[in-house]
Design a protein around this nucleic acid. Structure first.
Length: 338
DNA sequence: AACGCAGGCAACCGCGTCGAA
DNA sequence: TTTCGACGCGGTTGCCTGCGT
């Protein structure tokens, strides 16, 4: 069918707004509210389409818009939120009073993104940017001959600061390539528990996820994490409004493509400064091993991958309908690198 | 001074979603 | 249940400005 662009109608002006047009729009909205954007231009005496009026108002003329440079706190908040939400600019803007989604999007693309790249951080995944192909070429010979795998020697040849991240990537790679890798949605309804090592791994993951060392991550026996902010609580705690709630049974939503709508946070009912974080269980577990199609999915994948169990005991204790149960190859001893 | 280039940002475009008919 | 209009969102474009040569 196709819809004609709203601005294609004859006589409707496009391009930069003049001060006179701005004033007409401001005067009308201050007097009448915007009401229907469709009818506003005619009523306000503007030769613009409603969409153009809405954009001009929400991105520029709104009285509560904050102008000027982004503060360090705002910038840090954007990075944190982006690591969780991805390119959900409107959701990010909702946490930054006075800032518009367009402004944040532009600021991200022109400043933050470039800075992250300079720092060697992938602005999409928020993980250090290592060339996976090169890493693959380094690891492939070892994978072909696991007995020769000396990951610690490999890692110490690279900047120690990225060791934990390299481990994550290496772990992903090993998992996706190793025949020994299992990704089994556990059917047993055994009460789940996280081992200490699993908690440490999960905690590290979440610390990385929020790009901060100032979060406390507590665990309960059902593998839901209580994520409590101790720093800039106003920024972090408000996140709950934008997340898909997980009910008391740990149920979460799956979109019509069969993918998880992640991350799943839910505000702690007893502690409004905290969130419970649920490791999602992917019914379509093949998708976890495949190339993720979005940063959200990638984060999910990494989360799952990061919570590997290194012992049989851990694998059993990790069984839950809501959790993954998969093993890390024996040749990779995670604990040595954490 | 003139030119080219890159960065920044406002505005546009097209698609998805939602609600009403 | 289907259709369609309105709105909102994210990606992209193109203009303006500042800087370097």
């Amino acid at each position: 069918m196709g819809r004609a662009p709203c601005c294609d109608k004859n006589g409707l002006k496009k391009g930069p707004w003049t001060p006179e047009e701005d004033q007409k729009l401001i005067n009308y909205i201050q007097k009448n509210g915007h009401g229907s954007w469709r009818t506003l231009p005619k009523n306000a005496g503007l030769s613009r389409c409603g969409k153009s009026c809405r954009l001009r108002w929400t991105n520029y003329l709104r009285p509560d818009i904050k102008r000027g440079r982004f503060s360090f706190e705002e910038e840090e908040t954007i990075i944190q939120l982006h690591s969780i939400l991805g390119n959900k600019w409107s959701a990010i803007a909702a946490q930054l009073p006075g800032r518009t989604d367009n402004e944040i999007k532009n600021y991200w693309n022109t400043h933050i993104r470039k800075r992250l790249l300079r720092m060697g951080i992938d602005p999409v995944t928020h993980f250090p940017r290592l060339d996976l192909l090169d890493l693959s070429s380094l690891l492939n010979p070892m994978l072909c001959n696991p007995g020769q795998l000396d990951l610690s020697r490999l890692l110490t040849s690279i900047d120690p600061l990225v060791n934990s991240e390299l481990l994550r990537l290496a772990s992903n790679l090993l998992q996706s390539q190793s025949q020994n890798t299992n990704l089994v949605p556990a059917q047993e309804q055994q009460a789940p528990n996280l081992s200490t090592s699993q908690q440490d791994l999960a905690s590290s993951y979440i610390q990385n996820l929020v790009q901060s060392n100032s979060q406390n991550v507590d665990f309960d026996s059902s593998a839901q994490f209580k994520w409590q902010s101790t720093n800039r609580a106003n920024n972090v705690c408000n996140l709950g409004d934008n997340f898909i709630p997980v009910d008391n049974n740990g149920s979460y939503n799956v979109d019509n493509m069969g993918q998880y709508m992640v991350p799943n946070f839910v505000r702690d009912q007893n502690d409004q400064t905290a969130f419970n974080f649920q490791i999602p269980y992917d019914v379509n577990h093949d998708s976890v091993l495949s190339t993720p199609s979005s940063s959200q999915t990638l984060n999910n994948s990494n989360c799952s991958t990061y919570l590997n169990s290194s012992t049989d005991h851990d694998q059993e204790s990790y069984s839950s309908a809501n959790l993954f149960n998969f093993e890390i190859p024996d040749l990779l001893d995670v604990s040595d690198f954490m």
